[in-house]
Design a protein around this nucleic acid. Structure first.
Length: 601
RNA sequence: UGGGAUAUGGUGUAAUGGUAACACAACAGGUUUUGGUUCUGUUUUUCCUGGUUCGAAUCCGGGUAUCCCAACCA
């Protein structure tokens, strides 16, 4: 089976270095030919498109190679985490089209991690430090100079055990005691300079309540959690490269611990964790291997959760799902399909280069997908009246409009035509520019699905203007022989085909047009630069922000056909762009979001 | 005054010592009742420098540039 899969994969033109490793590992029969991954978000914010890149590989490769992928919430910091985020994360993963085998929590392992830490203390490999954060930082040294040992580094084991117990008692003041691993204060890798592995937080945890007061830190949790779960491939982003040796060290120590305790002293563990411990002792499971890939960085986009939270908290956007945000829920609300996001991720690939991807590639992916699935309708977002002077007053015709020319099986719908119409203001010029092929005095155009019309000649009252010189009404005549479907409709004309709506047969609508939130191409670097100049994050963000990122058009019209379409329906407003029904929309007050414009418009 | 990582058209990504290619972007043209789609074509590439080799994007030496690391965050 393994062989078939790897052959199949190798037939493809190329796979990422990550996938190649999987293929090799399976071919070598590592971990008994078993493959397991995990997606480990911290529930302290909403998922963004960068997470989609991790999701696509964690879930995608597990599925492709017959492995399992679990969702594990990395919930070791109760002061930042909340159950609100847990639900949103689960929803977003499912929306993207992925499903986990199990849901786990790092907090599931608090007891095992505690027991392991106690064992390390007994081994003389961990100690309680009672210095302040400032003192500890000072002793850490710098990237170019070694650190110095804490005066508490050689505290006797008994005292360490007593103090560690006290850290968890609820009586210990946060910040006064920490547990540190005893490694090497002169190590060139700063993470090895006696890293803090437990700190005190007297905050109830959203899952474990007030059971714990001493909480393990990331480096003391992540690798061990992977190990306890039986993960074989632990993928993460590039900033964790220097954590890998520490990850490996703790995993190695944990294996020693598991071998040392044997199958005694684990009776009070859950059944799953008892068998986890036994799994660590087996020779089949070689343990997890961490591999890092480049995180998604998009131009004109700020990705970090911290800053996204700041945008929401300061009211710069309407919420996590404001369609200008790079969050999954925002892309969903804006009309992106999950397929388009996954296709985009697939196109940019996984490497170890710190890339800045072009947002245009994402837009190309969404246009490509929506071209296949969006229902075509007419919408006039900037209306001006057009009167067909030779069309009988009171007459109404029902014409046929194709729902999607890319998919004839989607059928057609009807659209009413009458003497008074709305067309786009942009589609008329009083004096046509050189390459303008739309309506102007004396010019002919075709009205989509309807007739060829001709604007009145100059001198024959082609349009009205108001006091400011704005066109208020355009006058034209139609050629009755040219209705779509008639032989006369084949007549070739110079003008383009315009979309339109019958004034008496359309609905008012609100249309929200979005532009990029950031004016600078690389907000991540620019933010760092401005903060380096002494600006606060908020000030820096205000300076980088595009003041015109949202235009709400309230004077728009759409076909009646869309009135009862459910929220998030994919639409194309013909000749304008892809739009969707906003979650705020009701049949009485229709609201649409611009997903992305048509190319070259 | 350290350690770790990276460098291929404008942007990404492939080529695993043997013809530098694909997508996006840009430009030109054909088709088109969406200035969309589609089709055809064009422009633009191996950071620098030495070496090994019949042959180097790939291997080696020396530079240069960029990113990450001194949170009781993950």
């Amino acid at each position: 089976m393994t062989e078939n899969i790897s052959n199949e994969a190798q037939e493809k033109k190329s796979v990422s270095f990550i996938e190649q490793k999987v293929i090799n590992d399976l071919a070598e029969g590592k971990n008994g030919g078993r493959m397991q991954t995990r997606f480990p978000p911290e529930p302290n914010g909403y998922l963004h498109i960068g997470h989609a890149k991790a999701i696509a590989i964690d879930f995608g490769l597990a599925k492709k190679y017959g492995g399992q992928c679990n969702l594990r919430f990395d919930d070791t910091n109760p002061q930042k985490e909340d159950t609100e985020y847990v639900n949103a994360i689960e929803q977003d993963i499912r929306w993207l089209g992925f499903e986990w085998a199990n849901i786990y929590y790092a907090s599931d392992y608090f007891q095992q991690l505690w027991d392991f830490a106690v064992w390390l203390i007994k081994q003389g490999r961990a100690y309680v430090d009672e210095q302040s954060a400032e003192e500890i930082a000072k002793q850490k040294g710098t990237t170019t100079s070694p650190g110095t040992n804490s005066p508490f580094r050689d505290r006797p084991v008994g005292e360490n055990l007593r103090l560690f117990e006290f850290m968890n008692s609820g009586k210990c003041e946060p910040g006064t005691l920490v547990l540190r691993a005893k490694i090497d204060m002169a190590h060139p890798n700063m993470l090895f300079r006696d890293p803090l592995i437990y700190r005190v937080l007297n905050i109830p945890h959203w899952r474990t309540g007030s059971q714990w007061n001493a909480y393990p830190m990331y480096d003391f949790t992540h690798g061990q959690s992977d190990y306890l779960e039986g993960v074989t491939h632990s993928w993460c982003t590039l900033e964790f490269v220097e954590h890998r040796p520490l990850y490996d060290l703790f995993v190695t120590w944990m294996k020693e611990w598991a071998m040392d305790i044997g199958n005694s002293n684990i009776d009070n563990y859950s059944e799953r964790l008892q068998s986890s411990i036994l799994n660590l002792q087996s020779s089949t499971y070689q343990g997890p291997r961490q591999t890092e890939f480049n995180k998604l960085n998009l131009n004109y986009t700020l990705m970090s959760k911290r800053n996204l939270l700041a945008l929401v908290k300061n009211g710069f956007v309407s919420g996590w799902d404001d369609p200008r945000m790079p969050t999954i829920c925002a892309f969903r609300r804006r009309g992106y399909s999950p397929e388009s996001i996954v296709n985009f991720i697939d196109k940019i690939g996984y490497t170890t280069y710190d890339a800045l991807n072009d947002f245009a590639l994402l837009e190309s992916a969404v246009r490509d997908d929506l071209n296949q699935r969006a229902t075509r309708v007419a919408a006039v977002v900037n209306p001006v009246k057009l009167i067909i002077t030779n069309y009988p007053e009171g007459q109404v015709e029902e014409l046929t409009a194709v729902n999607n020319p890319e998919r004839p099986e989607d059928g057609t719908h009807t659209i009413e035509f009458s003497r008074e119409l709305w067309i786009e203001r942009d589609d008329f010029q009083t004096v046509a520019e050189k390459k303008f092929m739309r309506l102007a005095p004396g010019k002919e155009v075709r009205l989509k699905n309807a007739y060829i019309i001709k604007c009145n000649e100059e001198g024959d009252h082609p349009y009205d203007i108001d006091a400011e010189g704005n066109v208020t009404c355009i006058y034209a005549t139609y050629d009755p022989e040219t209705r779509s479907g008639m032989p006369g409709a084949d007549r070739k004309i110079k003008g383009k085909t315009l979309h339109w709506l019958s004034c008496g047969h359309c609905l008012p609508a609100e249309v929200r047009m979005y532009e990029r939130l950031w004016q600078v191409e690389n907000p991540r670097d620019e933010l760092a630069r401005l903060q380096g100049e002494g600006l606060s994050a908020i000030e820096a963000m205000q300076r980088m922000m595009n003041p015109d990122s949202l235009h709400v058009l309230t004077n728009c019209f759409v076909e009646k056909f869309v009135r009862d379409m459910p929220a998030l329906s994919y639409l194309q407003f013909q000749r304008i762009g892809y739009f969707n029904v906003d979650t705020d929309s009701t049949p009485e007050h229709l609201v649409f979001n611009k997903t992305v414009g048509l190319k070259a418009r």
